[in-house]
Structure formats: structure tokens, C-alpha cells
Design a protein around this nucleic acid. Structure first.
Lengths: 109, 109
DNA sequence: AGACTACTTGGCGATCTCGCCAAGTAAAGC
DNA sequence: GCTTTACTTGGCGAGATCGCCAAGTAGTCT
């Protein structure tokens, strides 16, 4: 895979990591939940309904992408969003109509 | 996979599809190139340096996600961005500092 | 019509991702 | 110290994704 295209800048790599961090149902649900404030891993585990180990790996990935920050308090680990732009982006995304017909220019004769 | 989390709304599915459509080096490069105007498949093929069939599949996926629209003119097929919000989002993403140390609240004694 | 160009689609191996279980770590409480 | 709670990490099978080649389609041109 990835023939001649492996010329990513750091910026590109970070963009891709952040997009991948959001492009999964559980991770998107986590990001959306965190828009209303920090949550600990057990709360997020209940939210997505998967094994805690699975959720923990999702959170690590999102943190590595720069999307989340974590803070340990007592036995709990709390995660918070670091990206204030999600809401605006999703509003714009949701505004797109779902389908796209093939546009075909009328023949000029 | 996807134990109890298969409760996606249409909106969620569309958000995921759009994020996945961007979360790949070749596809991101295509989206970025299209920010400066439409391109035909052969131009985009040269840009990403992969087989045209590969690029064509990327473009189909991006179109299905609602990100692109296509127009056939003569022998060429031109693709255009349908999402005006990419630039703003990426500016915000690029503004994030790459790493995040584990935050640890000081003990109060 | 036949040849050519620009693109799409089918198929398939190679690689990546996902989720669970099991095992490990770290802080709190006894 | 030992136990419990909250979480992370390793490993592995199952399924998804990716990219190439080969074959098909749709216009253009002569």
C-alpha cells in the first residue's frame, strides 16, 4: 500500500490522526459526550457499552491524536476535549444534503 | 465488533462517513487540492501517484460521503468539493499542540 | 463501425483495525 | 502489608480497508 504518496508533512499526519480519531462510532460518541464536559473512563465505558479495555484504547488513540487530554484524580482518569472546533465543523457537515446526482452539462450545439 | 453501540442515527452515520472520507492520506490530499477548484480524475491520479482505479474508488467513496460532487464533460469527469467548512476546521486542528502530558492534580494535604 | 481515451467496477491478496479476554499497574482503604 | 477499584496493555482472531491488475463502460474521433 501507499506507493508514491508517503510524502506526508507533520501537519498532514496530525490532520489524518485527528480525523481517524473521530471516524469511528464509539469514538465519535465519546467526543460528542465530552463536548458537555469531562468524563471518567467508567462513565464513557457505560456510554458506549463496550469493554473498558476497548474504551481505554479508543481514549489513548484520541489522546495521541491531540484530541483529548487526561487527568488522573484518585482512582479515576478524566478525559476532556482539547478541540473547540468540533461543534462548528459538525454543524457544517450536517448541513450537507446526503446524496449527489451525477452532474452532466447540457450539450451546446 | 460493535456490541451495544449499533444505535447510530442517520446524522451520526453521515458524520462518520465524512470523517472516514477525509481520514486517508490520498483522500485528504485530494480534498485539499480541490479547495482551489475542480479537477478531473487524471489530474488527481497524477497528484496522488496511485493507479487511476484506486483514485477512482477514493473519489466514489468521497462522493458517497457527500463530500464531493462530480460532473462529466466530454471524456473527463470533474470532481468538486461540496463542503465549505474544511478550511476552518483544519485551521483549528492545526492549532492544536501535538502532544499532551498526563495531567495530575497536586495532592491537597 | 472500429479505435482510442477517460474513467469505473470486480476481484483478490496484503495489511490494518476492532473488540474481547487475560494480565499488569497504580492509587485508595483497611 | 493485602485487597479492592479503576484503568492500561498484550495478544489474538474476525472483519474491514487498501491498492493493484484485469475487464467493463461511456464518450470522442475518424
Amino acid at each position: 500500500m501507499m506507493s508514491l504518496m508517503a510524502h506526508h508533512t507533520d501537519r498532514t499526519s496530525r490532520r489524518i490522526a485527528l480525523l481517524k480519531a473521530l471516524a469511528h462510532p464509539s469514538r465519535l460518541a465519546i467526543a460528542e459526550a465530552l463536548q458537555s464536559g469531562e468524563r471518567c473512563v467508567c462513565e464513557l465505558t457505560e456510554l458506549v457499552g463496550a469493554d473498558m479495555s476497548t474504551v481505554s484504547k479508543h481514549l489513548s488513540l484520541m489522546r495521541a491524536a491531540g484530541l483529548l487530554e487526561m487527568e488522573k484524580r484518585g482512582l479515576n482518569v478524566f478525559y476532556r476535549l482539547r478541540c473547540p472546533c468540533l461543534l462548528d465543523f459538525f454543524e457544517c457537515v450536517d448541513g450537507l444534503s446526503p446524496a449527489t446526482p451525477v452532474l452532466r452539462r447540457r450539450k451546446i450545439r
